[in-house]
Design a protein around this nucleic acid. Structure first.
Length: 692
DNA sequence: CTAGGGTTAG
């Protein structure tokens, strides 16, 4: 069967299902929103209908930040020698030369002590400089100068000082400043609340909001936009709904910022339907609005729909920005869609975002995940600015391609370029060592990362080391690492051990690991299958029957194994065991291929010891979805085209061997993303080093 | 009088 992918189909198995679609819940939310809309229509009848016809007045343009930095008349710097320094600072800030501005301030500070009275407009400029540079040192110096020189700030300047602390993440000082303010206005409240949200203290944000609501009984659209972010952070829909209702009562729900924040809140709290409703009634669909709803669909695993929305956005004539392209590249990464990604890459450059760090990092990730590590490298080297995420993406790319030496070289280059590695960097480096069998280097890094780089090994780093040991067949050592870990072993650690047991055929320890995993994630289908297969392999019929019984009782259903392949910009899905008529040509070609690879040493492998997918029929392996997909891809593309497959399950031993040899006889590159990792097959070899 | 708000990458 060769189906063009229809909406939702590709998401059922592959994507996360963290948002169970409880019909009742959605129904309630929809009716809630319906009421909300009625309420709004009632509250502002005429405006509403104007809005729905797209005639809603545009929001006022933001006033430009230029001007307003004139020297304060009554308080110029009065010691002759330093006069002009303040004016200089203000001018430097206007030219965005923030570092120079702070340096000039330092001169003023050291040479004139507190004799120079710095005016309000200069402080204002210094606040901008500190915020732009995120300079904690700068904040402390500017603030202490103000206090020590006896300058008495007014409410405006106090708010600016508060903002300066908030934006630099100095929330303890900001809280003190806020508490000590002789008077506060709405701006003060909004500023401190947005700081709390930025630092992830969503509950505190709500507490302060409630105090503000009761004490001042006021709030603006800005307050709601910020509070929606707090609700989104809580990932619970109820508070957000309450705020939505308040926003409607205050007649700010149509505000462009509030609308976007609402879309984001609803999608992050699990209701893409409500997010869509808010998007539908947005008076003016801005770039950010589109971006937010696209991000929402992507978050829920509806990658196809997200891509459709992106093309709709394109047609609507709205300007696309670096946010848009970054997201689209990431969506393409999940869809394995080289064509769409290439177009997005072109669009990115055409629209003038070719230097954007986030979008380029997404591209590095895309190219390296889809077997084009040289392209990833090219994008990376052309980036004028790189951050730790960019480095991590490329290092992980080399690791996944089984090119550990290059990954280590990059890591060293990163250190020499004074980029600080983080825990993700070490994950990439350690797994690169593991994939390439660089066990000495891996151990050295694992043992020194805490002391040398202040990154304590976490569970995932342990899992990497367990895999490293597992590859070498050192199962007892791997088990010891789990037992002696300074924290409770995680599922990932046991899973790494289980993989090692599967590859090295250690049933006893494998059974132990599988039981542990089963105990920790009793709702996950694949764990039942693994356990079931292991019991069957051990001949433990009774245990197997009991697992099967529990599975039935919980209503979990075995899903068929699926593979998707991109051919000529279309995605096609194949299901294991499908023998329907349109397959005839695919099967014929497959049989021909199988006999060809037999000449290169192919011997069918028996069912692997612990497959992820239930296999009841012995001779079914010819009909495995990955073989069907490869056969289809080979028939329908030209000789040099690489094939890209995504599949719901871990590739089996037999398919892995078969695909390896197929790349040898056909000269193709075949890239497979399976449930556990990435395989790049070329010339009879696989990047995973035959361990997965 | 000024100031405070929404979306992206490993």
């Amino acid at each position: 069967m060769d189906v063009t992918l229809s909406p939702y189909q590709n998401t059922s198995v592959l994507e996360t299902t963290s948002f169970p679609s409880s019909d009742v819940k959605i129904f309630q939310q929809k009716s809630y929103l319906l009421n909300v809309r009625k309420h709004r229509a009632h509250a502002s009848g005429i405006r509403c209908s104007i809005a729905e016809h797209g005639l809603h007045p545009k929001p006022k343009p933001k006033p430009l930040k230029t001007g307003g930095y004139e020297v304060v008349k009554k308080e110029p710097d009065f010691k002759g020698s330093s006069s002009g320094l303040c004016g200089q600072i203000e001018k430097l800030v206007l030219c965005k030369r923030y570092r120079d501005a702070l340096e000039t301030f330092e001169i003023l500070e050291i040479e004139c002590q507190y004799d120079v009275i710095v005016g309000k407009s200069t402080y204002d400029a210094l606040v901008d400089a500190c915020i732009s540079l995120r300079s904690i040192r700068g904040v402390k110096r500017v603030f202490s100068y103000m206090v020590n020189s006896g300058f008495e700030p007014d409410l405006y300047l106090r708010n600016r000082m508060l903002l300066m602390h908030v934006k630099c993440g100095m929330m303890i000082d900001a809280r003190m400043l806020f508490d000590e303010m002789p008077e506060r206005n709405l701006v003060s409240w909004n500023t401190i609340i947005s700081g709390l949200v930025d630092s992830g203290d969503y509950m505190d944000a709500f507490r302060l909001f409630l105090i503000m609501w009761e004490e001042q009984s006021e709030a603006s659209s800005r307050t709601f936009a910020t509070m929606m972010r707090a609700s989104a952070g809580l990932e619970t829909i109820f508070p957000g709904q309450q705020l939505h209702a308040c926003a409607i009562k205050m007649d700010v729900s149509q505000d462009i910022f509030v609308s976007c924040a609402l879309i984001d809140m609803y999608s992050k709290c699990g209701s893409i339907e409500d997010a869509q409703c808010v998007f539908d009634v947005m008076p003016e669909k801005t770039t950010v609005g589109w971006n937010t709803i696209i991000a929402g669909y992507a978050l829920h695993g509806y990658s196809e729909e997200a891509l459709d929305l992106y093309y709709e956005m394109q047609d609507s004539g709205v300007r696309m920005d670096h946010f848009t392209f970054s997201m689209i590249v990431r969506i393409c990464t999940r869809l394995a869609s080289l064509e769409h990604a290439k177009q997005a890459h072109a669009g990115l450059v055409r629209h003038g975002f070719g230097l954007d760090i986030v979008a380029n990092t997404a591209l590095v990730d895309f190219y390296s995940k889809w077997g084009r590590i040289e392209d990833a490298r090219h994008v990376f080297e052309k980036m004028p600015l790189k951050n730790v995420i960019s480095w991590n993406a490329l290092i992980a790319g080399y690791g996944n391609h089984g090119r550990g030496i290059e990954a280590l070289e990059l890591f060293n280059r990163m250190i020499s370029e004074r980029m600080t590695p983080n825990h993700v960097t070490f994950l990439a480096v350690l797994s690169a060592c593991s994939y390439s069998g660089l066990s000495d280097q891996g151990w050295e890094i694992f043992e020194t990362m805490g002391a040398d780089f202040k990154v304590k090994p976490r569970a995932m780093h342990y899992a990497c080391m367990i895999e490293l040991l597992g590859r070498e067949g050192l199962l007892d050592e791997a088990f010891a690492l789990i037992r002696d870990a300074p924290f409770k072993p995680t599922v990932n650690m046991w899973a790494a051990l289980l993989t090692a047991c599967r590859v090295h055929k250690n049933l006893e320890l494998g059974k132990f690991a599988a039981e542990k995993i089963y105990g920790m994630e009793p709702e996950k289908l694949s764990n039942y299958v693994v356990l079931l297969n292991i019991y069957n392999s051990c001949g433990k019929r009774e245990e197997a029957a009991s697992v099967f019984h529990t599975l039935k009782k919980k209503g979990l259903r075995m899903l068929p194994a699926c593979t998707w392949i991109d051919v000529k910009k279309q995605q096609h899905m194949f299901i294991s065991g499908d023998k329907s008529k349109p397959q005839v040509q695919i099967i014929r070609n497959l049989k021909k291929l199988m006999s060809e690879i037999a000449n290169h040493g192919y011997v069918p492998k028996k069912n692997s010891l612990l497959p992820d997918v239930d296999e009841r029929e012995e001779q079914m392996s010819l009909y495995h979805s990955e073989k069907l997909a490869v056969s289809y891809g080979l028939i329908n593309t030209t000789n040099s085209t690489p094939l890209h497959l995504v599949q719901s399950h871990r590739i089996c031993d037999d398919c892995h061997l078969a695909v390896k040899l197929m790349t040898k006889v056909t000269g193709r590159v075949i890239v497979v993303r399976d449930a556990s990792r990435f395989h790049r097959f070329e010339d009879g070899k696989c990047s995973c080093g035959d361990y997965w």
